[in-house]
Computed example of a mutant assay.
Amino acid sequence: MGFLSAIFGSKDNTQLKEAIEGGAFLVDVRSSGEFASGSVKGAVNIPLDKIGSQLTKFKGKKNIVVFCQSGNRSGQAKSILEKNGVQNVINGGSWSNVNQCVG
């Protein structure tokens, strides 16, 4: 383990990869303009400010992966979903990180 990963922890994408391989609902929470400039294949765009009004889209999903540009907005989205009773939500971090895990 490298010095920096010993301090900050290493990014383990095992859970993320397993969720994606299992057909997770992929949600890009960036703005529609950001989404239009490129995203993960198969992802839907539900911007962070619309999450609360789009809760029905998340009901009954086995696994949900939320992501954005850096992981900040997706962390907020995960929190909103969990506060509204949506379970099995994974913060995938950046869209490029999630994209690397998509087969």
Rank of each mutant, 00 (worst) to 15 (best):
N63R: 13
D12W: 02
F35K: 03
I20T: 11
V65M: 03
K17M: 11
I7S: 10
N45E: 04
I20N: 09
G103H: 01
F58T: 05
K11N: 06
K57R: 14
I51N: 13
N99T: 07
I51F: 09
G42E: 02
A19C: 12
V27Y: 01
A19K: 14
I20P: 12
V98L: 14
E82A: 13
K83N: 12
N97K: 14
G85L: 07
G93Y: 01
S70E: 01
L81N: 11
G92Y: 00
E82G: 15
C68T: 05
N72S: 12
L26N: 02
T56F: 00
N91P: 06
K83S: 13
Q54Y: 01
S53I: 06
V40L: 05
Q15G: 04
G42S: 13
A36F: 00
S39P: 11
N91H: 02
F3P: 09
I51E: 06
I51P: 14
L81I: 09
A24D: 06
K57S: 07
S31L: 12
V66R: 04
E21D: 15
G75W: 05
W95Y: 11
V89A: 01
K57G: 00
G22Y: 04
I90A: 08
G33Y: 01
S39A: 14
A19W: 03
A43S: 15
S37P: 07
S94N: 07
D49K: 15
Q15M: 07
S10R: 12
S10Q: 11
K61Q: 10
S94V: 07
K17Y: 00
N91Q: 03
